[in-house]
Design a protein around this nucleic acid. Structure first.
Lengths: 195, 195, 195, 195
DNA sequence: CATGAATGAGAATTCATTCAT
DNA sequence: GATGAATGAATTCTCATTCAT
């Protein structure tokens, strides 16, 4: 692995554990056994490193989302499920990056933040478009606001970075299934009505 | 308003805008027109101030949750709705505090963090208990894991601190209704099945 | 005991343990359960308190030395012994004060320091005068410099504030006897000469 | 001379003049024309600097004492004399360091203090061993407690850091001779007895 | 590519002291 | 006599960044 890749890995680890502001360049280079000069050879600033971490994360998400959207073989409901799975998986597999991504956006400079925000917005609107398509095509109820539901789904999934532990009592696939089942059919006991 | 109250207000404002680590005591006292000595007359440390903000927030939430739980006149479904409303309202009314609360827990020292975490855990388990009661009493489906649904609900509601703007295109009551409707009945078009 | 006396007592205790500079007025008043205002009612400054402690100590020493010097019933050798006893006793009985006295002179302001230094000088010259009298009157050898011997005696005695512990393996009277015996007759084995 | 050496030199000078607590890092770096950052590049803390000063001093003393102890060509009386000379010389040559060494031990942190105390103890016990050997081998009287005499000698010599001035009316060699003569034969006029 | 020395601005915190009440 | 609020200057220490080598 390249020196630069190493720096990125270590800093994700440290930023997740201690926080971006609380992690010094010294911490990062000490964890790698190099000196500060080396860091500044590869990165112009601490902020640029954070920016790269953010872009790597959101670009990966967008790329995978794009692949889901383009699929012609599945309907919108399945696409929604794939996106829920994508979000949850991403947290399972790249939990550290996910936590840095969600927590440290404030520390980007205005331009970087704008870029990242725009991409996050794209991701959200892509999801919303799937829901709206599903509504038009009769898969989803039309009496709920697509924008608010989109936020609800993102909240549900993204929040799991706060607590989800792959070694814990629930697997990520159980999580996806429970979330999807709740989202699609709700938690109310229906046969109660038919009794 | 007392000087101490003023310090708390101003720091919530600044912590929300710039972040805890990025806000200096100097920033806080300058916003108030007092000196650093004054700050340290009222607070032992910057961390203690953050701790107080956290405790104020979570204690208020727990108190209101308690009131909802104790109500004998409503069923579990309504209690769930009240808690969703509580979370969303809290963000509408105390958005700043909410954002500080969710973002800055890392900056508490281990003991304070443990205290706050314990209280957050209590809030979550109280909510889970309502859901479990609803399952037992036939209000909710029994084939979904109560713990995961609890996280889903909390994620949904809490995430809104990231985007919800009371002046935006949706009111908080609309938000509550959409969330509850989705949670209870799901977003899938049901008459499709009956066709 | 008066409030002022209490302040003096507590601060001697704290100055000895933590050092003058490292002890804050806050520490002193907290140990007493009063407030800083009270301190400044009785003392103009922290330095003035230190000055009073110094003066109490050296004035007591000078007073007792005076009594020894004035005695007509004993010779210079006995007077020397009484002064050694005085110094050692003072450390046993007022160990804390002694330690503050020897260590914290640097923290007096120039005027206070001058006053105290003058009194310490007086004490030393009084002792030197006894030795010189003893030399003239045939009690002591005349081939040793009185000034240097005076310093030797003071060093011997004063140094004990660094280590002497009344509960330790030597009593203060043993200390006085050993010191006097060494000072008067030396530690060399004399019968070796007569062999 | 290296920057680090320079920092040590200047701080000894300042610590001696103003005291450790009363000397700020600012004072030190200003005296050198560098910045605070430079100080902290070389030392982790102010306390670590003090620790290094202490260790340099006591290690030098121990090294020289060791050389004296190992000598086979001189008896214990001469070894004692060499150690008295060592102490007095050290104060003459490194008066500043000596004063810092004797006055500022309180400002070491507990671990550093323990290390230094242990070394000081070793120095003292080495001296005591010489005296005990001298007693066993008939050079010194056996009716005096070796431990107390050791303290007496150390007090005599060390105290001179308080007053001894190489430019004053006594040379260091005179001081050594007077101290040794007093220690060995005492100050009492012996022929008085034989008259 | 990489280092090590240096910087300087700013951080949290302490504390003797004042003073109106 | 005593208090409590406030001050402001100073203190230790951190850290992103630079740069000659």
């Amino acid at each position: 692995m390249s020196v630069k890749q190493n720096i990125v890995e270590q800093s994700i680890r440290l930023f997740e554990t201690k926080g971006f502001s609380e992690t010094s360049i010294q911490d990062v280079v000490e964890a790698l056994g190099v000196t500060k000069g080396t860091f500044y050879y590869y990165f112009q600033s601490k902020e640029q490193l954070l920016k790269e971490i953010h872009l790597m994360y959101i670009d990966e998400l967008l790329k995978r989302q794009e692949q889901i959207i383009r699929r012609a073989d599945i309907n919108n409901k399945s696409k929604l499920m794939e996106i829920v799975r994508l979000l949850v998986n991403q947290i399972r597999e790249n939990g550290r990056s996910a936590r840095v991504f969600f927590r440290e956006m404030r520390n980007l400079n205005p331009e970087s933040a704008a870029t990242v925000k725009q991409k996050r917005r794209t991701f959200r609107l892509n999801l919303q478009a799937i829901i709206e398509a599903g509504m038009r095509e009769g898969e989803f109820r039309q009496d709920l606001r697509a924008d608010l539901i989109t936020f609800a789904i993102l909240g549900m999934c993204n929040w799991s970075y706060n607590w989800f532990n792959p070694e814990g009592p629930a697997t990520d696939e159980q999580l996806v299934e429970t979330y999807m089942e709740t989202l699609l059919h709700g938690m109310e006991r229906l046969n109660k009505l038919t009794k």
